[in-house]
Design a protein around this nucleic acid. Structure first.
Lengths: 330, 330
DNA sequence: TTTATATGTGTAACCGGTTCCACAATGAAA
DNA sequence: TTTCATTGTGGAACCGGTTACACATATAAA
């Protein structure tokens, strides 16, 4: 790899001049600029970002911590963030936390050691030291942290929406699946749903699910229909769980949506390809990722930020695991 | 952030000694070591990886280029690679290429500028300059590059396997979905399938699919049944496409597997949750990612490598979109 | 007692950039 | 003609580590 010294020698100038040409700052004579540019192309020189980063004490790298990209919701977020970052010449260092604080900490430490200029984190522990006094801006994604920069959607409203719609379509023996305790958005959805249900004076059952993993989702679906076989409406904690519930319902010979209605959460890509296709509360994951990246860039560049916490809309996406309102009975 | 100088001052020694303590090399008196360690904890010092990287001309970062993590196959790969890297104290810089050479190039350039010590790439262009003379080891993942380090599974054999099994289960009017032209593994599968079909003297139809995107998969599924309505067996290019085909078949009132059998490829997590659950040719994606990372680490550390190209087994995963062999007719 | 070897520590060069500052040349204003 | 601002360039310090090398001391062998 050619260095700035090689370029300087080749062009017959000092390294300072080369640096000025590269960065387009300060005075450089047109002829000199030409010479330097020629030397750069001849030597195929590209500046060493590490050296730059060392002097400037900041890189063009940003850190991204997500729970688990194996859950299809997160790649959408990641992709949105990455596309926006890419367009602004930032690169992403990445880590999966599995929702564990110690893994988060380990990643964040090495991110900081690598001079990342900002962080996007989907964490349940925004108020730990890990995220305070980091010295670099942090945007919380999919998770709120009161009054700190974040991009998320209104889980509570989503939960209410799910309850409202499933009620409007006639379910009365509803089972709500409560996602992992330590995952805030999951609890928000749950709270929203039961709030609405209580509000309407409708009794409901609850199934706890301790993770969002594909591998375990089937277990809870089984548990649901064993414990509450007369369930005629399921509000699932996300689309993965909803998919498993749909699968299990069909295995048991139940008709969806006639015998059981199911509403998921997230609207991951596969949801529309299920049969029947999954009715769900949509979060605009890709856009959330992009918005988080955009916000972080503003913070990094010290631009005045119009809005520090961005709440994205949640939308009822009606498909075929719920009945049509016209057909509503009860 | 405290620097090595701060620690040196605090401990009353030189920076060289601090460096020796940190790295555990050279002679350091036990008492001195204690003093330094105390200073380190007091100041909460962590070494600046950028400075290290500059001097050593290598970081603890590795680059990962994947086509698109929005396709559920790739997060599995990524997760496997990441877990293995994490355990070996390497971190990952990441980029989605969308199968485009220029995006790959852009990422790889900045990776190199950041002193990554190795690269894992899932590319269709292994033989371009981008990947030659990079000066750092590269492992190709999910894609072969003749005689260069790679981890992949035998797509051709997978294709044959799919054809063999669908034939054994009685389909005779088979449509093979041919994945994107520029994606090698997709073509391998296709070639394998038609090889077997020709071998057995079975006629078949072909549907071209120009991407693996969820959003477009439905279109090809529709096209399939419009153009070849009497199809009684579909060999799909991957599980996403297979899912769309299953969806469309059911929409048209076809019974799966009685009227149409469907075989996918990859075995992504959702496949087992479909109804009927998807029969597919499984690739051990997570393990492939781990294997690639392991291989790359060996290369980086100049260990003698037992096997430079690792072919992972492909397995027929029988589920419910194919009939049981006992029921076989014809 | 002398010499060789092992142990322990500090100074300074180095990695490859960026930027402050000094200095020179040119042209415009006084 | 002198003065001063503008333009153009280079030397060298600096970012925060690592390591070659010099040097000092202690210990073991001759």
């Amino acid at each position: 790899m050619a260095t700035i010294k090689d370029v300087a020698k080749q062009a017959g100038v000092s390294v300072a001049t080369v640096s000025r040409v590269i960065n387009g700052i300060g005075y450089v004579h047109e002829d000199t600029r030409k010479k330097v540019e020629t030397a750069i192309t001849e030597l195929q020189y590209t500046p060493n970002e590490v050296a730059r980063s060392l002097y400037k004490r900041k890189s063009r790298l940003i850190g991204l911590v997500l729970p688990d990209i194996t859950n299809p919701f997160f790649p959408e977020l990641a992709r949105g963030a990455e596309d926006e970052m890419q367009e602004n010449d930032f690169r992403i260092i990445f880590g999966n936390s599995d929702e564990k604080l110690d893994k988060e900490q380990e990643y964040i430490q090495t991110f900081v050691q690598n001079n990342v200029v900002g962080l996007i984190a989907s964490t349940n522990y925004p108020d730990t030291d890990t995220y305070r006094n980091l010295g670099i801006p942090v945007v919380f994604l999919d998770r709120t942290a009161d009054n700190r920069p974040s991009v998320y959607s209104d889980g509570r409203e989503g939960g209410r929406m799910a309850a409202r719609e499933i009620l409007a379509r006639g379910s009365r023996r509803i089972t709500v699946m409560r996602g992992p305790e330590h995952i805030r958005p999951a609890q928000d959805r749950f709270q929203g749903a039961i709030e609405k249900l209580k509000d309407q004076g409708i009794a409901y059952n609850v199934i706890h699910t301790s993770s969002f993993a594909f591998t375990e989702a089937g277990t809870w679906a089984k548990e649901l229909f064993e414990r509450y076989p007369d369930t005629d409406g399921v509000i699932a904690s996300n689309d993965i769980v909803a998919t498993a519930v749909l699968h299990e319902a069909q295995r048991l010979g139940k008709k969806v949506p006639d015998d059981v209605q199911i509403i998921g959460f997230d609207d991951i890509s596969l949801s529309s390809l299920l049969t029947p296709s999954l009715t769900t509360i949509r979060q605009p994951a890709y856009d959330m990722g992009r918005a988080a990246a955009r916000l972080l860039i503003q913070l990094i560049e010290n631009k005045k930020v119009d809005q520090k916490t961005i709440q994205m809309p949640v939308t009822f996406t009606e498909r075929d695991t719920t009945r049509k309102v016209e057909q509503q009975h009860g």
